[in-house]
Every structure is written in structure tokens, then in C-alpha cells.
Amino acid sequence: MHELTIAENIIKMVELEVGKRKPDQKIRRIVFQAGRMNAIIPESLTFSFDTIKKYHANLAEAELVIQILPITVRCQSCGSESTIDEPEFSCQHCSGTEIEMLSGSEMFVESIEIDEE
């Protein structure tokens, strides 16, 4: 259910960024990236986004592209980097448990496409 708040935050940020550069431009597409740790349900996020975008004139026809990024970690013992597919935080190479998360738990708006003038 955190998808609704996330959709609101995406819209706020996009309006702010576009407002700074090209106010009143129609927004076509927003590319949103989230790590697997964020447990985003793309269908719920799309539903939330489509529900609230109607109340924002510049966004009414915008499409939200959702990209889910893998969880990558670096082992503190052997230094190797690996991708984690199961919720088990140990090194794929040496089974060490002292691992640092490199990516997979943050959410970004990567890019915004607006109509050409």
C-alpha cells in the first residue's frame, strides 16, 4: 500500500523538476526505478499513479515506466560483488555474512519525457 504515497511523491517531484525548466509542458513518460528490496508491486503503483494523475493537468496522459533493479552486494571478507535473488544476505562466493548493499533499496525518478515545443 506504500505505492500510493510513492506515486504522490513521484508526481510532486516531476512537477517540481519540469516546473523549473519547462512549465506548462505536457509530460509524456516518467521512468521510475526501484530496487527489489523496496517491494513495489508494479500493478499497484501503476493503479495509484493513474488514479491521481488525472488531478494534474500536465500529467493526465503521462505513462509511468517502472523498472525494478536487482539487489547487488559486496562481500567485506572476499571483496567480490554479487546479485542476491533470495532474501538471504550472504556472499555467493565465500558465504560471508558481512556484506554491504550496493544497490537495490532505493527509489529514483530516472528521467522525464516531455512534449517537444
Binding site: 527509489m107 529514483f108 528521467s111 522525464i112
Partner: peptide, 13 residues
């Protein structure tokens, strides 16, 4: 036109 912004979604929070 594509604007690359790469901003954290929950940065306000």
C-alpha cells in the same frame, strides 16, 4: 525531449 534527473523519490521524507 527527455530530462534525466535521477532524484530519490522519498527525498522529501
Amino acid at each position: 525531449m527527455k530530462l534525466f534527473i535521477v532524484r530519490k523519490v522519498l527525498e522529501a521524507n
